[in-house]
Every structure is written in C-alpha cells, then in structure tokens.
C-alpha cells in the first residue's frame, strides 16, 4: 500500500441504526464526543470537510437508469457520513480513525487514500504505454 499520499485520506463511517439501542445519555455522549472530535481535527487543519448523511437516498443503476430507494448495500455497511482528511500518511489517518467515538457501538471506519486521478484513465495510460514498448 502506498503510505504517502499528498491527496489526503477519506474516512467513510459505516453502520446504520447503531444509534437506536443507545440510552439518551449514551446518545448525548457520543454526539458530543463526535462533534468535539471533528471540531478539534478541523482546528488542527487535519479535517478539511465532513458531514453526516441523511438516512435516505436513492441508487441509480443500469443503462435504463433505474432509480431505487435505499437501504444501501447491507444496512450495517451503509455509509452514514464522511470526513476528508488532509494528512500525509496512512499511519496518521489510522490514528485519527481509531479515535472515532462510534467504534465502541459497532461503527466501522473505512480509511481510503484519495487518488490523484481517475483510476480508469491511469489504467488506460499504463496499457497504452505497455502496448508501445
């Protein structure tokens, strides 16, 4: 894996409905923790964007542009929000991912390096270079 990445990293928070079984006190606690976490990362310049996503939406697929309702993937894998991190290494992105206040409640954090260019185009370029050798 490429550990240096000047394009940053994306955290995708996966998990749906993990909130519902929590007591009101736990809900308040995890919400406060999450907001404080994002505020600190923003102030440190490590988070450049982030939002929760509404638990609704559509999926568009196929040549016929079929529009279907969520849930998306399996609901426990559904994406509930994201942070975009401006940090130089996967190690640093991982340290931040491990701080996620949702982890004790079953949230999974997917950590993905942002790509410099569309992978389709880079693959195509590689093939074209190979073909000319």
């Amino acid at each position: 894996m490429n550990l240096q990445n000047q394009n940053g990293y994306m955290l995708l928070f996966r998990g749906n409905d993990w909130i519902k079984p929590l007591s009101p006190e736990e809900k308040q606690k995890v919400t406060d923790q999450w907001m404080a976490w994002f505020k600190r990362l923003t102030e440190q310049g490590k988070a450049v964007a982030g939002n929760p996503l509404e638990r609704e939406g559509k999926v568009v697929s196929g040549n016929n542009r079929i529009v279907s309702d969520g849930p998306f993937a399996e609901s426990k894998e559904a994406i509930g929000g994201y942070f975009l991190l401006d940090v130089p290494t996967m190690d640093e992105a991982l340290v931040i991912a491990k701080e996620c206040p949702g982890l004790p409640y079953g949230v999974k954090v997917e950590v993905r390096p942002v790509a410099a260019e569309c992978p389709v185009a880079s693959e195509f370029k590689r093939e074209a270079e190979f073909a000319t050798i």
């Binding site: 994306m10 996966r14 982890l103 954090v109 997917e110 950590v111 390096p113 942002v114």
Partner: peptide, 27 residues
Amino acid sequence: GGQALARSGVIVSGKNGCNVTDGPFAE
C-alpha cells in the same frame, strides 16, 4: 468537489479501533 479513491485502504472497527483489516470493503 470530488475525487477518485484509490483501490486500497483499511477498515477500522472494534472498541478503540482494535481491529484493522485490509479491504475489500463491503461487498
């Protein structure tokens, strides 16, 4: 805004992020 994501990465889960696994992600 918009970006492509590289086809690599990890999933962090468990209390205090004790589990770190490589993709694939979801299905």
